[in-house]
Amino acid sequence: MSATGYNFAYLDPQTKRMIRRALLKAVAIPGYQVPFGSREMPLPYGWGTGGIQVTASVLGRDDVLKVIDQGSDDTVNAVNIRRFFARTADVATTDRTAEATVIQTRHRIPEAPLAEGQIMVYQVPEPEPMRRLEPREAVTRTLHALADYGFMHVKLYEDIARYGHIATTYDYPVMVNGRYLMSPSPIPKFDNPKLHRSPALQLFGAGREKRVYAVPPYTRVESLDFEDHPFSVQRWDEPCALCGADDSFLDEVVLDDAGGRMFVCSDSEYCASRQHAGHTGPAHRAQRGSLAAARAGEVGIEQGKPVPASNDTASARLGRGPASS
């Protein structure tokens, strides 16, 4: 299946060594943005080229790769990147968080807890957490060098003064190991607490901006806040309509043009495995048949998302998988 004429995992060995050197430096200085010679990749900038280069550099033949976008293994970009590595590296892929050794993600951290030995690879569009307040790179680098982050709190102050609370909901800036201010990538702030003292190694790649950075296992990661306006995460009034989870990030699914909607887990694998284990949510229990019909009819899909496709089926469709490799 590996496309001929290209190196294992696409990048040539020298480039991978260069990126691994940059990653080692990033691990040594948690949260610090290390410049690296980002290459043009066969996918466009902004579509995960940083994450892909990091994954390509750390991936070995025995690794099991999971790729998600918006929490789902089946979004177009996740499928595309998984196909890329299936073609160029021929590694095993999986939907299951617990089975994966390398997880490349865009915009989410899986709900299932991560373990030691796992590597999270985040796709980062803008590595500089101060960029919206200060566009000049020469200035932001100086501010990092001096740990001069006062004006980040000015922004939070303004939010509270204007809205009564901090109004940043995603890409919520964090302090890493009490030293470097870091963008966690555009994950919802709901996921920020998962960064803190995670047993997994967390690597961040920004291809277009040519930076990598890292949070080593068990590192302190704190979201910026005020003592009297502590950091808090989103909560929903209802559990996942399909699996009943009340601890996961929920996507809003519009059911019809009359305002009908339901909330379901953004982490499709988490939701599916909970349903597999027998958990059900309110919508699922009450109107299983009519709902599935409504969704298929209204949104024009061939198969509803909530159907708990087994891992084997997914692997077979991808033409490969842990069993067939």
């Binding site: 466009p44 900038y45 902004g46 918006q70 995603y170 277009r208 990030f249």
Partner: peptide, 25 residues
């Protein structure tokens, strides 16, 4: 233009998790 073209057009990728967060707020 390779960097610019990619980043402008990455807005086509799904952003519904971030949008959901804003929507909720």
């Amino acid at each position: 233009n390779v960097e610019a073209g990619g980043f402008v057009q990455h807005l086509k990728l799904p952003h519904y998790v971030d949008f959901q967060s804003e929507l909720e707020l």
